[in-house]
Design a binder for these strands. Sequence first.
DNA 1: AGCAATACTGATATCAACATGAGAAACTCG
DNA 2: CGAGTTTCTCATGTTGATATCAGTATTGCT
Lengths: 149, 149
Amino acid sequence: MVSSTADYALRAVLLLASRDDAQAITSNEIADATGTPRNYMAKVLNAVAKSGLISSTRGPAGGFSLAIRPSEITLGRIFDLFDSPPHHPRCLLGSGPCDLARPCRAHKAWMSVTGAQRAPLLSTTVADLLDGRVAPSPRKSSTESRHVA
Amino acid sequence: MVSSTADYALRAVLLLASRDDAQAITSNEIADATGTPRNYMAKVLNAVAKSGLISSTRGPAGGFSLAIRPSEITLGRIFDLFDSPPHHPRCLLGSGPCDLARPCRAHKAWMSVTGAQRAPLLSTTVADLLDGRVAPSPRKSSTESRHVA
DNA sequence: AGCAATACTGATATCAACATGAGAAACTCG
DNA sequence: CGAGTTTCTCATGTTGATATCAGTATTGCT
């Protein structure tokens, strides 16, 4: 459901956010601490740094450090770097005209589902994750009881 | 976010559910109507049929038809056939003991996020999609206003 | 029995994500 | 200026999902 690359990025950002000191950590340290392949993590960090979430300094005592505050980093912002949000180019029902401007019923309902899936990524920040704080879970069992008979 | 295979399966089921007559449709008809590759759709339909959601009859005038009512088919049931739900084998924060029984704070929050993403898949049925009906969207802006300053 | 239509099965090709390795660029120190 | 440390970049290998093809099994009809 979430690519491993985006998962690596999340772990790295989470690790950086968990230490308050502005001291930079090397790519290898991050890889070892998060249990990810060293060379690959270096590439992932590079991509994240390009987006502006983290900053990198080269040379001795160099490494990576958080560029903005954890409360500003939503999960969606991290995942969007690698996993592009899905778009349904063709209508879910085969026939009939159905574009984005005038989606068919199924298309409309589907967009709502994907939107609901995306909501917690947009509302949850890295700071929330560190504090164990959690986005409000949607109340269930409202549609659950409809399809019993 | 959702594999193309699962997407194909959803379209096929949606197409079958959209016609009330119990007449079977051939694999090729389904593929053409949904705009998916013929040979691949045949294989996907085969897998869906094995799970019991649809039934298949061979020979002339054969094809596929819905095995159970659309209101009984949740989206999660279709997607789980191909996209296995993600599990986080390693803790999100590198160090410290953290298993599934006693998850760390970050782990706990993460599980809540993934759970919230999965909720609409479990509560929405194929019948809902056909009717344009939609799962209740989680109330937002409760965590949204926290990270402004 | 034999033919045609259809679902099924396995082997194979294709492609993108994942991962590795080596070397170049950049920075800090003596 | 030179040496050491670290990020950065490119080329290559590996894996799994995606897609195709050819062949087999099953059923209905004549």
